[in-house]
């Protein structure tokens, strides 16, 4: 189905951001594991894979609209050098993602493209969930301090 060019461009912008976070959270997961923070490593690996599933939905939607999914373009991958910096950069990225997705939902609604709206809303819920988890971590850090918080990240949940 021939899609609206503005919708396709917006979907590609969302795709670029998803592809960027796949890489960012994957390298975050590996660095957390290298430092010994198994719990954070597991969480970020899962998030990276969730972002890949989001990218899959977006690519399928763009193809359905007869657009060309752009898998060549990436935004800067923001690699933090400490655990807390990684969490900070992740929340920064998630906040931008939520804003971008809400703008996408508004555009899809304006264009009467309910299918695209639903795809974006589903992705948005996932990003909000992770942003909420990240905010919880900052609240924990505020309450118990960096050292106590990090000592709880050394073992995974199993």
């Amino acid at each position: 189905m021939r899609g609206d060019p503005e919708i396709i461009e917006m979907l590609n912008d969302v795709l670029t951001a998803e592809l960027t976070t796949i890489n960012q959270y994957f390298v975050d997961a590996k660095m957390f594991a290298n430092w010994g923070y198994e719990r954070l490593a597991d969480k970020f690996r899962d998030e990276s894979i969730d972002e890949m599933k989001d990218a899959e939905e977006l690519i399928e939607r763009i193809l359905y609209l007869d657009g060309t999914p752009n898998l060549q373009r990436l935004n800067p991958v923001r690699v933090g050098e400490t655990p807390v910096e990684k969490l900070t950069l992740a929340l920064e990225g998630e906040t931008e993602a939520i804003d971008r997705l809400n703008r996408g939902v508004a555009l899809a609604r304006e264009k009467g493209d309910t299918g695209t709206r639903d795809v974006l809303a589903e992705i948005l819920h996932g990003e909000e969930e992770f942003a909420d988890w990240l905010e919880q971590q900052f609240e924990l850090i505020r309450q118990v301090g960096d050292a106590l918080y990090l000592s709880q990240q050394i073992h995974d949940d199993d």
């Binding site: 800067p76 991958v77 923001r78 690699v79 933090g80 050098e81 910096e85 950069l89």
Partner: peptide, 11 residues
């Protein structure tokens, strides 16, 4: 934050 990944230079 690592800014330049090729040369490993941070902000």
């Amino acid at each position: 934050m690592v800014v330049c990944h090729c040369r490993s230079v941070n902000d």
